[in-house]
Design a protein around this nucleic acid. Sequence first.
DNA 1: ATCGTTCATCGTCGTTAGACGATGAACGCT
DNA 2: AGCGTTCATCGTCTAACGACGATGAACGAT
Lengths: 110, 110
Amino acid sequence: MNDDPKQLGCDGEVSQAARLAAKLTALSHPARIEILQYLAGNGCCCCKDVVGRFDLAQSTVSQHLKILVDAGLVRFSPEKQRSRYEIDREALAGLSVSVSTLIDSCCAVP
Amino acid sequence: MNDDPKQLGCDGEVSQAARLAAKLTALSHPARIEILQYLAGNGCCCCKDVVGRFDLAQSTVSQHLKILVDAGLVRFSPEKQRSRYEIDREALAGLSVSVSTLIDSCCAVP
DNA sequence: ATCGTTCATCGTCGTTAGACGATGAACGCT
DNA sequence: AGCGTTCATCGTCTAACGACGATGAACGAT
């Protein structure tokens, strides 16, 4: 385990960390955490609902929602007029497992 | 639960999301995830060890380590010459709980 | 005393994030 | 047809990130 020339695996390990980091990036903003909680508490929301809830411009909220959608944490249905945003519970559960796994592996004493 | 004027709690909830977001920001970079794993696997390391492991400049590694330390995920002992960096397992465990709590609360059906 | 190591910090540079207003498309309603 | 709503997108601006090289301090070793 010490004879690696330089960094960390050819692709598998790197992209795994990168994938997790991408999802964590989506979660690493207070507004997005609270938007997620709001979505969770309200099942299904349109952008306007969220806008009315936070002190942010509509474009900003739309951006944050897009980031959450792109990260795969929120599902998006381009409804006719008011698009619907909904928590992706499976994805969130998966992320929870990933984080736990990472942290557990870091906390385990070798 | 719908009569809040605008955003989200006066301070408690907001700063809780902000605090979590701050820690997640530290975790939201592939290099830092891998540095964390490396520290976990090696108990206690100096900066040079990490530098030799990753394909990053010493100053960059030092920066990443500082971010992890500032987030409270890594403990730092300014040893004489080679400073020691060590995983803070308690903090990591606490973060794991925070993330799980957040996600569980988001996955719970109201 | 001098040299090599280690490391934090500074300054720089290019890129991205975060916030906003403005705009225009799509739609419901009258 | 015309109006109001909703929303994604664009452009802009500032601030922060990520990476680097250079520098200097602190220390061990010779």
